[in-house]
Write a protein that binds this DNA or RNA. Structure first.
Lengths: 168, 168
DNA sequence: AATAATTTTCAGAAATTACTGAAAGTTCAG
DNA sequence: CTGAACTTTCAGTAATTTCTGAAAATTATT
């Protein structure tokens, strides 16, 4: 297989993976393209490679910067901005975990705490079922949150080696 | 806050969470509704609670069964089928991990292995950047896969207590 | 300061995804 | 068997999400 074809397949697969996980397909494709490029690319390069409009490229590049997955690179003597992706997949994973934690766990906590404050007898069947489910999720979310926090601060080797030991 | 209002808020929040993670909003809402109901509900109950059509309710119920998150309950003397959700959130989490592993990790593995077979000198800059990224992801995916496998077979208490120890 | 290159924004269009409603299919009690 | 209760399917429609293209804003160059 030629490099070009392999790149296309990889970009396609990464896009599908992203969209299964609630990330817009094009954003994931831009990310994939930058991950396999040896050098930073300009917005124009990306437009041409992926056949997307300038507006679309720009919006997804900003979103990727916002997620902390790529950064602008200024090339001396060049007018254009270039973009480069973090290629260490462990760092990518940690960054995504960090952002999703901020964007999703925190809001769900607020809702869980809020809906726990229901009136009426907590022993009554309907109230009880509700409160137990909510409490269970709250408890689980707390543990997950702590785990994620540790994960985000962990170094890969430490984490993986400890984890593998644990799994034995 | 009244139970009814709290349920609605919870169902809404669960739906949003689902759609952020690539799960259709209504499917997540049906799941939420069943998680907070003390007794199994019929398709009709669900239609009425969520204001959705029979077809929609049916399709999402089947999808939830397919994901292993709810099950049919036959009530003696009743013609209708009823549905009940697994309420232990740890089991829910494991089940989702199991399904996603099957549906997503396996396909991505195939692609990664496939695209590793590129022609040309692996030392050449473009080939090298590509192969290193792909190799890094493949390696990460292998570890993740092993971890998930363990997780799926783990019991919550064992897992959490070991994990908390690890984190210290 | 004028011009040219580049980036950003955003209204409307296109594409994708989800839903409805009605018809077809099943199941079961009488 | 028959018909009523219930479930499933799916073509067409609706809602949502994403993208385009062109205009506005910004930034650098002469």
């Amino acid at each position: 297989m030629e490099l070009k074809e392999a790149k296309e397949k990889f970009i396609q697969a990464w896009g599908t993976l992203g969209s299964n996980w609630g990330i817009n397909r094009t954003m994931a494709q831009v990310h994939a393209l930058l991950m396999v490029s040896p050098d930073p690319l300009s917005a124009e390069d990306i437009q041409d490679e992926l056949n997307i409009s300038g507006g679309n490229a720009n919006m997804n590049l900003r979103a990727l910067i916002d997620w902390g997955l790529i950064s602008k690179v200024h090339k001396p003597g060049e007018r254009k901005e270039f973009y480069a992706a973090e290629k260490d997949i462990w760092k990518v994973f940690k960054q995504v975990a960090k952002e999703r934690r901020k964007r999703e766990i925190e809001p769900i906590f607020r809702v869980l705490e809020d809906v726990s404050k229901i009136s009426g007898n907590p022993k009554e069947k309907n109230n009880k079922a509700f409160l137990e489910t909510v409490k269970g999720i709250h408890n689980f979310a707390s543990k997950t949150d702590k785990t994620l926090e540790t994960l985000i601060n962990a170094d890969e080797n430490w984490f993986m080696s400890s984890f593998i030991k644990l799994m034995k």
